[in-house]
Amino acid sequence: MKVTESSSNYENLEEMSVLDILSNMNKEDQTVPLAVGKIVPQISAFVEAIVPRMAKGGRLFYIGAGTSGRLGILDASECPPTYGVPHDLVIGLIAGGDHAIRKAVENAEDDPNQAWSDIQEYGFNANDTVIGIAASGTTPYVIGGVRKARHEGLLTGAITCNPNSPLSKEVDFPLEAVVGPEFVTGSTRMKAGTAQKLVLNMISTSVMIKLGRVKGNKMVDMQLSNAKLVERGTRMIMEATNLPEGEAKKLLLEKGSVRAATDYFQSKN
Rank of each mutant, 00 (worst) to 15 (best):
H99S: 03
K268E: 14
T160A: 04
I63W: 08
L198R: 12
P174D: 07
E182K: 11
K103N: 07
A115I: 04
G145C: 08
L13G: 13
P166R: 12
Q266F: 09
C161E: 04
A134K: 09
K268I: 12
S77T: 06
G157R: 00
G72T: 07
S17P: 07
K148W: 06
M202R: 12
I133H: 13
N201L: 08
G246E: 14
S204R: 03
E239P: 07
I159N: 07
I50W: 01
A49I: 02
V214E: 05
S267V: 06
M238C: 09
R189H: 11
T262V: 15
T139H: 13
S267R: 06
N242S: 13
V105I: 10
R147D: 08
M236Q: 11
N24R: 15
A76C: 02
M219A: 10
T156K: 05
G123V: 09
P52T: 00
S68K: 05
N24G: 13
K169P: 05
G72R: 05
E121V: 12
A45L: 00
A158D: 04
I237E: 06
Q266W: 10
N242G: 07
S68T: 04
S165R: 11
N24F: 13
N217P: 07
K38F: 03
P41G: 06
Q42M: 10
N12F: 15
A261K: 01
P80G: 00
G58V: 02
E231P: 13
E14A: 14
A135F: 01
G97I: 01
P140L: 10
E176A: 15
G233E: 03
V220Q: 07
E106H: 00
M238L: 15
I63D: 01
L19G: 15
L243N: 04
A115L: 06
F183H: 14
S23D: 14
R70D: 03
Q42V: 04
T129Y: 00
M25L: 11
S225G: 13
G216E: 09
D29C: 08
K215E: 10
A108M: 01
M1T: 12
D172P: 02
V32S: 12
M236D: 06
V40A: 01
L229G: 08
N242Y: 08
L22N: 13
P86C: 00
P81N: 10
S117R: 15
D29R: 14
V40K: 01
V214P: 08
G186M: 12
E182C: 13
V51A: 02
G37D: 07
S257C: 11
C79T: 01
I43L: 02
R232I: 01
E11S: 15
R53E: 03
T31F: 10
V18F: 14
L175F: 07
F265R: 09
R150M: 05
E14H: 12
M208S: 03
G123T: 07
F61N: 06
G66M: 00
V220K: 06
T262M: 00
T241A: 03
L211E: 00
G37Q: 07
L60C: 02
N164K: 14
S23W: 11
D172T: 04
P112I: 05
E11F: 13
L34P: 02
A115F: 05
S204Y: 06
A177P: 14
N217R: 11
L74Q: 08
D20A: 14
D172E: 04
D110Q: 00
N226Y: 10
L19P: 07
I50L: 00
R147V: 08
N24L: 15
A126K: 09
H99Y: 09
